[in-house]
Design a binder for these strands. Structure first.
Length: 476
RNA sequence: CGGGGAAUGGCGCAGAUGGUAGCGCACACGGUUUGGGACCGUGAGGUCCCGGGUUCAAGUCCCGGUUCCCCGACCA
């Protein structure tokens, strides 16, 4: 009766099965694109609300910029165009006529936003300019996977301009922390903040920072990025300001993004053989109440209690659903487990008589996660339980992550480590080393974690003395 | 973009040797059920991925294309 391929049997099949069975998304009739169904979108919406709040708390405002970008804009920044050219969707015709200048469907908006910023910014008083956009972008990807890599994907992209490099750097790190906190506090996803290697940095950036997450198959997912763009885009788009000293200077800009791929990470990190396991904060339904009855008489008393509990939990601010479908309890249990609902409340005739309810927590399988508790104080109880479930999911993921990272000091150790996780190894930040890794392993440099042990070691590739270790692993 | 699989009802699949499609689940209706994916009966649902070709006849054979999955290269 299993509808979901066991995770251990075929991780990729399992992932696709969960997406289908939990009703998150469908394939679209266009290659590499997906249709996100209401349940999947609801999760994304919650993630978005939390992030948006954090952006606003740190002084950012939202705005919108065009989907189409003149091709020439992309070409103004040499590295940028080189990096993105292979994956551009280009519009050459409109209204039945060939366009004078092709329009690019935005792969990211640095260029078109740079154009506006150049017009908006005149004085140091206009800085910093802190804008975020919720939109979708298009990249002509060769190989796609729902949520993880789609040709069109929804995300947010932040773009800021500052008077000094120091301020820009502060912004880059502030956002990296916003992402990191969002991942942990809202999505129960641990990860490593770090600097991308020069080889892996964003096309056009001075430095790129990322959070790397470990999926259930021990491959890495770059969950988000925050870029120090230096003055590269400011020079390309003439984003200048008159400083206090009455001299004209180029701005220092940043950009940063987090996409719906993070939802893919939530599925991959927390899901199990029963299906999805959602962190309570982003679960569209946090508590489901399943009534249990045989006769009509039982039905009516059970529903009376279930309805009352529903109102109580709702009034306590929880997203709760009373499942009144005409299905057997067993069916409903499995159904909601598949959809990852964190807490299930079971109300049967015995419970009504005893003033109790059955409680099942999704983070623990089977009987282990089941208990019976009093209807008195149920809201408080579940409120605490939801927090516990969040912590438990985070801890499980963290344990998995840390137990699959190995400190390595030689190339042979790295080679072995990436077969079952990530290596943390001394590495010189030189593109030649990245290429060596990519050419000799099916792994790559993930990032140089911000938290580094003190010391000096020998680079596992070049033999140089270095003071930094990099995470190396297979990745999506 | 290279290599390998695959495409048949919503989902999962079966359809040697060519003869005009079937099963399980899901769906609709009726009844019996309901504390871990209930059962019986009745019923509805299919351009067999698309386009050509071979043939009296194509889900099946041939050619071309599209999409999906896996492994690489490339990228959030």
């Amino acid at each position: 009766m299993a509808k979901v391929t066991p995770r251990a049997q075929d991780y990729s099949e399992w992932y696709l099965d969960v997406i289908r069975e939990a009703d998150l998304a469908d394939y679209a009739p266009v290659r590499g694109c997906i249709v996100v169904k209401p349940y999947g979108w609801a999760i994304y919406e919650h993630m978005r609300e939390f992030l948006d709040r954090r952006f606003k708390e740190t002084g950012h405002v939202n705005a919108a910029f065009p989907l189409f970008i003149p091709l020439s804009f992309l070409q103004r920044e040499a590295q940028h165009v080189q990096g993105f050219s292979p994956e551009l969707a280009v519009v050459t015709h409109g209204g039945g006529e060939e366009l004078e200048e092709p329009l690019v469907v935005r792969p990211t908006s640095e260029t078109i936003i740079g154009y506006s910023y150049a017009q908006w910014i005149r004085s140091y008083r206009d800085l910093p300019l802190l804008i975020n956009c919720w939109n979708s972008v298009v990249r002509w990807e060769k190989r796609t996977k729902p949520f993880i890599r789609t040709m069109e994907f929804y995300w947010q992209e932040g773009h800021t301009a500052h008077a000094t490099h120091e301020e820009a750097l502060e912004e880059v790190m502030r956002i990296l922390d916003v992402y990191y906190d969002h991942m942990r506090a809202d999505c129960a996803l641990p990860g490593f903040r770090g600097r991308k290697s020069l080889y892996e940095r964003f096309a056009g950036a001075l430095t790129t920072y990322s959070v790397e997450s470990m999926m259930g198959d021990k491959r890495s997912l770059q969950s988000c990025t925050s870029h120090d763009l230096g003055q590269n885009f400011a020079r390309a788009f003439e984003i200048k300001f008159l400083d206090r000293d009455n001299t004209e200077k180029y701005c220092w800009t940043t950009s940063w993004g987090l996409s719906w791929r993070l939802l893919g990470a939530v599925i991959m990190v927390h899901g199990d053989d029963q299906g999805l396991r959602l962190p309570p904060k982003i679960a569209p339904i946090q508590v489901v109440i399943v009534p249990i009855y045989k006769t009509d008489a039982e039905k009516s008393i059970v529903f009376e209690t279930a309805g009352r509990l529903f109102q109580t939990l709702k009034a306590a601010g929880m997203r709760v659903k009373l499942d009144d479908r005409d299905e057997t309890p067993g069916f409903k249990f499995n159904d909601w487990e598949l959809r990852g609902v964190p807490v299930r409340v079971e109300v049967g005739p015995k419970d009504v008589a005893n003033g109790m309810v059955g409680l099942a927590r999704r983070d623990r399988p089977g009987k282990e996660g089941k208990s019976f508790v009093s209807q008195q104080g149920l809201a408080e109880h579940i409120h605490t339980l939801l927090q516990e479930i969040h912590q438990s999911l985070l801890q499980q993921a963290e344990h998995f992550l840390h137990s699959h990272i190995r400190e390595c000091n030689t190339w042979d150790e790295v080679k072995e480590a990436v077969e079952d996780g990530w290596a943390l190894a001394p590495l010189a930040d030189n593109p030649a080393n990245d290429e060596f890794i990519r050419n000799n392993l099916t792994a790559k440099t993930l990032n140089f974690p911000l938290d580094q042990p003190e010391g000096e070691w020998t680079c596992v590739v070049s033999g140089q003395r270095v003071r930094e270790r990099a995470l190396i692993g297979k990745s999506y």
